[in-house]
Design a binder for these strands. Structure first.
Length: 205
DNA sequence: ACTTCGATGCTCT
DNA sequence: GAGCATCGAAGTA
């Protein structure tokens, strides 16, 4: 039985934490007790203030304040009207996090399809907002709760992924900071998001 | 109050 | 590969 990850596991460098989280499992337990889960096959790290892609760091308003919650809590970044699920990774006051970008569905596929009907099953959870919808997450309800909450928690990989199994690329959809190899995907996994860029910055493709 | 801009997704070609 | 829907937040006034 894999132990649940606690908030203390998420204090530190979001780049390392993102890499370690890849291959783990995101578990959602509905009010009905039904269990939805998926293997984490794509993550990105954001680390204000050293990160030029971390726009939250350049603002001083409610948005970055929400994001600057203490390590080990769920939070949502909103982009283009869509909620993106993240885990905070730094002490309170610093906006840094791991963004969960794609899942390979494991338990509760039918319920997920009910939350988010798609024509191709492949499209169910292969994007950061897609997985939020598929798991039926309510950002207002989940934001600010610890990562070991019964309703939404994380399990580490059964066995750590080898470097060969991990593909390292630039992050998706950002303007600055494209040189940073802070996106981690499970090599060859069909549930990785179709988003560009796909060019490897480290290792070979 | 109005404009601009995304850490996106969808629907076409 | 391109165009558009979308919405919260920032910047401007």
């Amino acid at each position: 039985m894999t132990p649940t990850l606690f908030p203390a596991h998420f204090e530190g460098d979001p780049v390392r934490i993102a890499r370690d989280l890849l291959g783990g499992t995101l578990v959602r337990v509905l009010d009905t007790g039904e269990r939805l889960s998926g293997r984490i096959v794509e993550v990105e790290a954001y680390d204000c203030p050293r990160d030029p892609a971390c726009t939250a760091g350049r603002f001083h308003a409610a948005r970055s304040a929400e994001m600057a919650i203490a390590a080990g809590h769920w939070l949502f970044w909103t982009a283009h009207g869509h909620p993106l699920l993240q885990v905070s990774c730094r002490p309170a006051g610093v906006a840094a996090s791991v963004l969960i970008r794609a899942l390979e569905p494991q338990e509760g596929l039918g319920q997920m399809l009910s939350f988010r009907p798609v024509t191709r099953e492949r499209d169910l959870t292969n994007g950061p907002a897609k997985l939020v919808y598929a798991l039926g997450l309510n950002p207002a309800q989940v934001s600010g709760t610890p990562v070991n909450s019964p309703a939404l928690h994380l399990l580490p990989p059964d066995t750590p992924l080898t470097d060969e199994a991990v593909r390292v690329t630039a992050r998706v959809g950002i303007k600055e900071g494209r040189h940073l190899p802070w996106r981690f995907t499970v090599r060859g996994n069909p549930w990785v998001s179709p988003a560009l860029p796909s060019m490897d910055l480290v290792g070979q493709g």
